[in-house]
Simulated assay, not measured.
Amino acid sequence: MEIPRWEDLPLDKSGPPLNAWGLYGKDDQLGRVNLIDNVAVKRGIAAVTEGIRINLNMPVTLKGVHPQRQDATHFVMLRPQCNDDYVAFNTQGSTQWDGLKHYGYLDWPESGTHTCYNGTTLKKASMISNPHLGIQNLVSHPISTRAHLLDIPRYLERKGLPPLQQFFGKTGVSLEVLQGCTADCGIQFAPGDVLCLRVGHTEALLALPSDEVKEMRHCCEDRGYLEYQGVQPTEQVMKWHWENGFAAVVTDSPAYERMPFPAKDLSLHAVFLAGWGMPIGELFDLRELAETCDRLKKWTFMFTSMPLLIPGGVASPPNAQAIL
């Protein structure tokens, strides 16, 4: 299906700004993942030239990854003739997909409600008995397609530009930097591709002493919000993502856009998840991928992800890999 013009948004004129509601039908539960058709999958397969497989997941049990979410619990149960595992975790506490039930437009309509993709209320989406928009849709229609890495820290270093600030006082990754890195790597996008954006958060987080990790958690609790690096949440940045036809986006930060979010409705979380139905991957481990891409001077690859099959689930570890 041809992607409508940016100027045609919102498609549902009675809905919130920049929505694409109804593009794939009023009962659609896949959103932009519909763009991953057989042609997109074959493009991904064609991108494999080296046979190198790279893990993109951080441990589910890693401590202190997200100050606002509880750490995982893991213990082994010794039984007479075997061992069993018990793991309890927040599905967004480490590497994750934000599914379409996760985030809605704030106060749309102006009645104190939050509205998710295709007009489903956040309250309705929260019901376990209602699997609509659940993460199980990314199992029945897996995100297996071609992907591209924009390694922003290395790009800035090559161009002699100031490095990104990770935690406080950051300005965000601008449209100019996104376009410049794309051109510098010779990347050509097509509808159904996945965009992987490295800002260097994983390295910065794992390098922090434990006392500073605790300090960040306390700071978050005091302020009520986090400060992390990500793309600038401007309409021009949104337009660039829409017109390039990404099926999903991935980053190594806790949020694809810089945090805290804008005070108004038009955060990327609202537009991407609730407006377009485009999953957001967060806290991916892009370190080995970035090193390998830089060594090979190859930033395009096959991307595969098979989330947990949780009917009605909000989010899931991605179980993702890159194949170069």
Rank of each mutant, 00 (worst) to 15 (best):
P209M: 09
K214H: 13
L178S: 06
R223G: 01
N130S: 08
F284K: 02
L197S: 01
Q68E: 14
K159P: 00
T171W: 13
Y228P: 00
S144Y: 10
L206I: 12
G51L: 06
A255E: 14
I323F: 14
Q68H: 08
E50G: 00
N34L: 02
L161I: 04
L150Q: 05
H241F: 15
L197H: 09
K264Q: 11
S126Q: 15
E215H: 08
L11I: 15
V177R: 06
M58K: 10
I36M: 06
T300V: 11
V39M: 08
G312Q: 09
G172I: 06
P17D: 14
T292D: 08
F303C: 02
D107C: 02
V33I: 14
T292P: 01
V199I: 08
M1G: 01
E215M: 13
G15K: 05
D285V: 03
R43C: 05
L206V: 09
T292G: 00
F272E: 05
K101H: 06
L206G: 00
I143E: 04
G93Q: 06
L206Y: 13
Y155C: 01
P191S: 07
E227S: 14
Y155I: 04
C181T: 12
P163S: 15
D12G: 00
A72H: 08
L106V: 08
S316D: 10
M58I: 09
G93D: 13
G51R: 03
H141E: 09
